[in-house]
Design a protein around this nucleic acid. Sequence first.
DNA 1: TTCCAGGGATATA
DNA 2: TATATCCATGGA
Length: 272
Amino acid sequence: MKITKEINKVIIRDEHFDPCQTLECGQVFRFRKNSENDYFIHSLNHRCRIYKECDCVVLETDVPDYFIDYFDLGTDYKAIINELKIYPELGIPISYGLGIRILKQDLLETIISFIISANNNIPRIKGIIERLCAKCGDNMGDYYAFPTLTQLFPLTIEDFRLIGCGFRADYLYNTVRMLISGVLEVLPSQDTPQALKTLLKLKGVGPKVADCILLFGLGKTDSYPVDTWIFQANKSDELNSPQKVHEYYTQRYGSLAGYAQQYIFYHKRELA
DNA sequence: TTCCAGGGATATA
DNA sequence: TATATCCATGGA
């Protein structure tokens, strides 16, 4: 990986960084496509344009260091792929998603976003999150920041309902109240099993949403979110439930489970 | 155990 | 074009 920093601009040369693949593998919702491999991304109160130019990726942003971390540019994906290649079932998925990276997203934003994602589709999830930002996030000029916990706290169940959260309104209202009591501070210091236990106590957070938060919000790459796509890809006569798929593949892939999940998810959706 | 709660997308008739 | 199903969680 070669990184060149200029003022308000970062240029990255790495075969394992493709904007489209990274954004379209189900891990993030606050992005908008301008054209092929050219996107705007919002994270917290930060913004970035990302696009491909020749064989480089260009980030245009006021906060280069934030997005260098956000895009996980310190991690060697070539080494990860070399390790995962010993699993024959990953050969094709990896070849489809060579440019995927796992984003390091803000914990609160990840928790709220993935509660909203439950039993939902991506266009609608994006709309709800946008309306939530507009409702109580800071006005940044031409976009709204993701709300802080303090900004979320005054919202009523009805407020969440009015922006289209549906039955998740109650979950969000309750979770905001549970988060106020210090959960956000304790989670990063917990190991994966502990953090999972903590997350499952939150309203609207079941096994799948918890795994997403572990992976995308806490960087726990030993978690393996099993959604409908992963289940379809992994199920067999023996592995006939999401629970069994989860147990088997977390064992199988260990600390690289999260990366494997992203390659499988992206490949499965590409075929669909 | 099964049903239901938003609603947008996708699959099927 | 109309209708059915899907999505992942928690409560009835």
